[in-house]
């Protein structure tokens, strides 16, 4: 089964991972801008990172028949520095015409602070001004519930926002309902310790239904598993879910969400000509 991983940080993965993902059916992915494992010292560091996301990774992915898309922002962790954040946000418009940019993301909260909230609001305003879709990071562990509610409060204040063009990511059992009920898309991140397991994600799909729900691997610097989406496919098959239902979650939903971006130009690959091995 072909699938799309809507949230995976390939800058932190090896080329071997691209090959493995291609072999497992990944045909497209989107990579939100995030923390690089260290705090960058200047806006120029972000300019280079945005070039990596818009030039280097699409080319690396294409070698294995995977289409790479991206989202741009300064992540919540580094957003505590408001002055730096504003310098970085000034850079973003020059990259919005790059052919693989889907929107602004992953913006959000990390420790639910005042500064993070200010930068989040300014990112939302930037997205509205440039008619961009938004992908949102919600905090982890004990901060998730509070942070998700704060994010929903802030989004509700923007009357010009089209909720169907916003995805709130890393939802779990205690946050998914409010996100979906408010009209947003929701993402579940399959992550070994701090987020959701494939079994729990399947539980949530069974309880909520598959509409506006996506699943992703995050695949970042932490102990994550880039092939987590195929793990969910396996789990749903073991439970007896139909191929159509599984495909809705792992392919049709991200496809539908991304299709609202003017840069999402995607061709389902021909299996006979698709590249799976090292070129």
């Amino acid at each position: 089964m072909y699938y799309i991983d809507p949230h995976i940080h390939m800058v932190s993965r090896t080329t071997d991972d691209y090959q493995t993902l291609a072999r497992m059916g990944c045909v497209a992915m989107s990579e939100p801008a995030f923390w690089a494992g260290f705090d960058r010292g200047s806006a120029d560091g972000f300019r280079d990172y945005f070039r990596q996301l818009t030039e280097v990774e699409p080319a690396r992915a294409a070698q294995y028949g995977i289409q790479h898309f991206t989202w741009l922002c300064i992540n919540a962790k580094e957003a505590e520095n408001v002055e730096l954040s504003r310098e970085v946000m000034k850079l973003i418009p020059e990259f919005l015409d790059c052919p693989n940019v889907l929107g602004i993301g992953e913006i959000g909260l990390n420790k639910n602070t005042r500064n993070e909230s200010i930068v989040f609001q300014e990112h939302v305003e930037l997205a509205i001004e440039h008619e961009q879709q938004i992908l949102i990071h919600t905090p982890h562990l004990a901060d998730k519930y509070q942070g998700t509610r704060m994010i929903l409060d802030m989004l509700a204040g923007h009357t010009g926002l089209d909720r169907s063009r916003v995805l709130v990511d890393h939802v779990e059992e205690h946050t998914v309902r409010e996100v979906i009920d408010a009209g947003y898309w929701a993402g579940m991140t399959l992550y070994p310790v701090t987020k959701c397991t494939p079994a729990r994600a399947a539980d949530i799909i069974e309880q909520m239904g598959p509409d506006r729900l996506c699943v992703n691997s995050a695949g970042d610097w932490g102990p994550s598993k880039p092939t987590a989406v195929p793990d969910l496919i396996m789990e749903m098959r073991r439970r007896g879910h139909t191929e159509g239902m599984i495909q809705q979650v792992v392919f049709d939903n991200p496809y539908q969400f991304f299709s609202q971006s003017r840069h999402f130009s995607f061709q389902v690959p021909n299996p006979e000509t698709r590249v799976f091995d090292t070129p």
């Binding site: 639910n112 909230s117 562990l141 004990a142 998730k144 519930y145 509070q146 704060m150 059992e173 205690h174």
Partner: peptide
């Protein structure tokens, strides 16, 4: 999940 979560205060803004 809720047990291990910080409380939400709707007057946070």
């Amino acid at each position: 999940q809720l047990l291990f979560s910080r409380e939400y205060n709707d007057g946070w803004q």
